[in-house]
Amino acid sequence: MPQYFAIIGEKDNPVYEAEFTAQQGLSGQGQQGFPQDLKELNPFMLHASLDIIEDLQWQTNLPAHSTTSGTTGGGFLRSRNTSNLSNCYFGKVDHFYGLIITAYVTYSGMKFVMVHGSSTATTAQVDDNSVKLFYQEVHELYIKTLMNPFYTPGTPISSSAFDSRVRTLARKYLNK
């Protein structure tokens, strides 16, 4: 079950991108990435969901009262797992032919978005709890990046330490 994860800045520019794939077998031979054609589509799917995220961003009541109604706002696919106490994690915000897009917004409006692919032809499954924990940990890593005086906010994060830590988190929470 591969994932495509990206941090999107305030000008809708990618700040960080990564693809995670599950490891299968000891040598990791059978890892499954996105198919090549989907790989190119991923950024487009992700950016298509940004409008929905920006709408959700300003909703005060995040309980999933609008899960069934597909007409109002963009919350038609919101998972029920989001709680009132925290409005950073949005859960599922969009879908695209069986792929699921989840989102998380930081306090400064950075959008963490992820496309969850499916290993088989069936619809992808998202474990809200672990995805949320993943987002929170990445959020903290992002804040630590901000604490670096040589990092200009909004520019791509090219640190290899950041990259390796995000991938470790992905293995921990997403591809167990």
């Binding site: 693809e19 995670f20 990791g28 890593l141 630590k144 090219s158 290899s160 950041f162 293995r171």
Partner: peptide, 29 residues
């Protein structure tokens, strides 16, 4: 290397889990 803007998203590598841990004062604080 880390994320490279001009290259795009990196795929995870086969033996990624065994890759050496990159020490960083910034991130371990």
């Amino acid at each position: 290397t880390g994320y490279e803007y001009s290259i795009g998203p990196k795929q995870s590598l086969p033996n990624e889990a065994n890759s050496p841990y990159i020490p960083s004062k910034l991130y371990s604080e």
